[in-house]
Design a protein around this nucleic acid. Structure first.
Lengths: 205, 205
DNA sequence: TATAATAGGGAATGATCGTTTCCAAATAAA
DNA sequence: TTTATTTGGAAACGATCATTCCCTATTATA
């Protein structure tokens, strides 16, 4: 099959090349999915948002669920980047955790908040009905949870968080807080980052 | 059957009387809505669950949204009863709050947890699309929040919760916890009531 | 009894959904 | 060129959806 591929060349696949940028299209798709959820988003909504014809979408993806899954993966990657970046702006474990919480509140609030979170949306709307998505959502929640547990342990190592804090239990509760923030933000209740983060930091006492 | 209607009798309305029990039917409807959400629940699913014909449903309700709204109201009433009852089993404010948290975790976990919460489901799936439901959801979140704030203030009055605790901020964070518990429970992660409640009670320190 | 009013129930309806099909266009290889 | 392969795009398709219609059954009242 593979003749060419002249060492480290990208090696263009045969046939007409794709005209649209996949990441751009996925960004547009995930925005609609976040806003309206899976079932309330029709293929027509998707093609309009992605600026593609129906046929093009079905050339690039097997079906609607595949579009959703791809959008989900992109969303999770982007969010993870933002969260890690927030954690980076901290001088110790406790500080990093506080910044992560603040970042979560900020993303759960205002315009971004009412756009919603794809993880929360998938958990609520799809996990009862789609085992593939449910497994993906659970895995992501566990990834996020162990990231937080890691920050707690870092804080305990650098002395900014007491040793008696139960890292795993506290991390699980904090995951509940972050997911709950998205629910409350979606319902458009105002969220004050400083106030909420201050209260939440008591969990590290 | 009865002649009657003699002063203060319920006074049966004209025409053929309803054969089914409304609350029973709503209980069945809300169960499907909780499990699958609004859009994934078809009228066919509803009539099967409620054991009514399509026509009967449309005789009793204006449309699908009206069924949902009625189911929502019944769900909220039932849950409020359960939560108040849990609060009742406590000797002081702090104890009542702990019981409420424990009750929330229990309902967010296991079979009941994967059935999901109609408030969370509505917030996530419908608040972007349906202003009526969004307003109802926001109002309910605020009701729940002020119930919790009230318990905190009770605890401060009876000395079981320190005065320096910010009742409103803490209540809002606790609402996030409860809503987040439902998200995490829907994704089927295990939730340990004792452990989570113990950690959460640190917010009252 | 006859009439009016409402509920029960299933078939019919029209809209919308996700998906497929088909043809023209673009690219690489032969 | 020609051929093979893939994309772009719109029209077509069948399934399913929420809703309406219509007929029968049941009640209270005249």
């Amino acid at each position: 099959m593979q003749k060419a591929a002249r060492l480290s060349q990208p090696a263009r696949p045969p046939g007409r090349p794709r005209e649209f940028d996949m990441d751009t299209a996925l960004d547009r798709a995930l925005r609609v999915f976040r806003e309206r959820g899976y079932h309330a988003t029709s293929i027509g909504d998707l093609t309009a948002a992605m600026r593609l014809a129906t046929g093009s979408v079905y050339k690039a993806f097997r079906d609607k669920q595949a579009v959703f899954l791809a959008a989900f993966e992109r969303y999770v990657a982007l969010r993870q980047e933002q969260t890690r970046s927030a954690a980076g702006r901290g001088k110790n474990g406790r500080d990093r955790l506080r910044n992560v919480l603040l970042s979560y509140v900020e993303h759960s609030q205002g315009i971004e908040g009412r756009r919603g979170c794809l993880v929360v949306g998938s958990a609520v709307e799809l996990s009862a009905v789609d085992p593939v998505i449910r497994a993906r959502v659970s895995a992501q929640l566990e990834t996020n949870e162990s990231f937080i547990a890691g920050l707690i342990r870092e804080g305990q190592a650098d002395g900014s968080i007491p040793e008696h804090v139960e890292a795993d239990d506290t991390a699980r509760l904090m995951i509940c807080i972050t997911q709950g923030l998205r629910v409350v933000g979606k319902a458009r209740l105002p969220l004050d980052g400083e106030r909420l983060a201050s209260v939440a930091m008591k969990l590290l006492a």
